[in-house]
Nucleic acid binder design. Sequence first.
DNA 1: TCAGCACGATAAGTTTTTCCTATCGAAGAA
DNA 2: TTCTTCGATAGGAAAAACTTATCGTGCTGA
Lengths: 299, 299
Amino acid sequence: MLTLRQMRYFGALASTRHFGKAAALANVSQPALSAQIMEMEEHLGCKLVERNRSGVLLTRNGMEALRRVQAILAEVERLEDAVRENGGILHGLVRIGIIPTVAPYLVPRLVPHLRRDHPDIEIELREAVTDRLVTDLLDGRLDTVIAALPIEADNVEVQPLFSDRFFMAMANNDRDVLMSPLTENQVDADRLLLLEEGHCLRDQALAVCGTAGKRSLVNFGATSMTTLLQMVSHDMGMTLIPEMAIPTETARNDLRIVPFAEPAPSREIGLIWRKSSGRAEDMAALAQAIAACVPANAG
Amino acid sequence: MLTLRQMRYFGALASTRHFGKAAALANVSQPALSAQIMEMEEHLGCKLVERNRSGVLLTRNGMEALRRVQAILAEVERLEDAVRENGGILHGLVRIGIIPTVAPYLVPRLVPHLRRDHPDIEIELREAVTDRLVTDLLDGRLDTVIAALPIEADNVEVQPLFSDRFFMAMANNDRDVLMSPLTENQVDADRLLLLEEGHCLRDQALAVCGTAGKRSLVNFGATSMTTLLQMVSHDMGMTLIPEMAIPTETARNDLRIVPFAEPAPSREIGLIWRKSSGRAEDMAALAQAIAACVPANAG
DNA sequence: TCAGCACGATAAGTTTTTCCTATCGAAGAA
DNA sequence: TTCTTCGATAGGAAAAACTTATCGTGCTGA
């Protein structure tokens, strides 16, 4: 079996053309180097050097081998450097999973921010419901997940990012005249519009409105926040809207946003990654970047 | 110190994503492989794999390392192949030294012949006097020498190639009326033109004409056979011409070629190489190629 | 919920590899 | 000739790598 040790010794021999000096260069005794060279020749099945009066000559095979050996040793050195230097924080590919009720409001601000502060980053995004994201995270298809807490998974590290208050959204011309601020039991569960199964915001909405057990009449399940709020703006009902979605969605739809009475219900958004990934530093940097993107909601 | 063994195990681990299977693939026990991976991580200063429930995951550093490791292992394999396959006979660079009284008559026929029969050959030629060629050979700057025998050097192998008879060349209008065939003592040493010091043909001419001790009047020493024969054709004297030079030189100059009486004097041209070069096969092929180039002179 | 299983880490002892010192033998130099 | 240089060889020590056996943890299914 060819070894790097043999190649290193052979490189030293080629550059000194002298067994003794090569051994000194390689910090071993001359017989040790001789033996390795002989073993290398044995393995390759041909002489690499000629031992002569006027020192050492490389054979033709030796020259060919030398070129390749030097290339290999250089490659090895680059491997050591590349992994050691490591590119610093948030370098290279980072695969981020984000739940659909956060992604559209965070991504447009987060990505440019990351690109600016970490020019070497390469971002891969996936948008899916929490369960799917956590599975992908645990299976190594994602490096980190941004989702609503709490997360039920072992072996993960969780860093809370910010708290995102809920508001009630309804059509501006809605006939309901709700108190503002709203108390949670004022909500008519039959008029509550929800996202489809699997979205954590659906469960949160049901929890907030105290209707976990009830069956909502209009519960067909929208596929996105935007769809949901379009329905709301067409006076088909009302829905819970997280604060971070308000600027974007009110710009798109004609909505009335009604706050809840304090203590306002909210969701906690957090960053999740595998404990064993050893990327706590990257994650801290990412958390910081996210915090810098949502100043209005920080809390 | 990074080793190829570590890389091979790491490659196996990356492809199986399972320590046990990787160990089987590498034909070692699982603890042995674990230890090598750990050592590699230690050396590189970072984790390469995450050990998890769902098997083994490569870290980001691990992926970077894997790419480089695979490249390195492929390079090593190519090194083994390249040296082992070896390209067959007369492949790659062959550095040939030829004495000046042979080169102009052999090279134009030999080089195309070699290129045709050994397409992978790369020929480097040097023309110099025997002493210089032998020094270069022994110092490894040449692979082989074509010169007149005998050669005084140790550690070399000698393969006689062909015998090259001498003729006397003189101007066609020379007043001397020599017997043909010529006997050696008929030559007027004072009219003998010679190459400069160092050429073996000079010494051979002096020996043939039995004038080793005499001082030739026109002994200023020409630098080449062609120069010498131009002088001859201008009736400045006569000179010994080897048979292989006759076709070329009589085409260039108006010469009278007179044979010697049998046994005609001759020189023996041979192929010389370092015993330790281990290229006997190459040299045999080269000798054969040369023989095929000089059929008229074969003897 | 608990035994069973899968998997990587650890332990202990053995084998293999690598190395060192000392010395040999050949070849060139004085 | 004798001396010196240089790579190879010998013998034994040190280091590396390997093996089997076992541990600990986390998942799985009765």
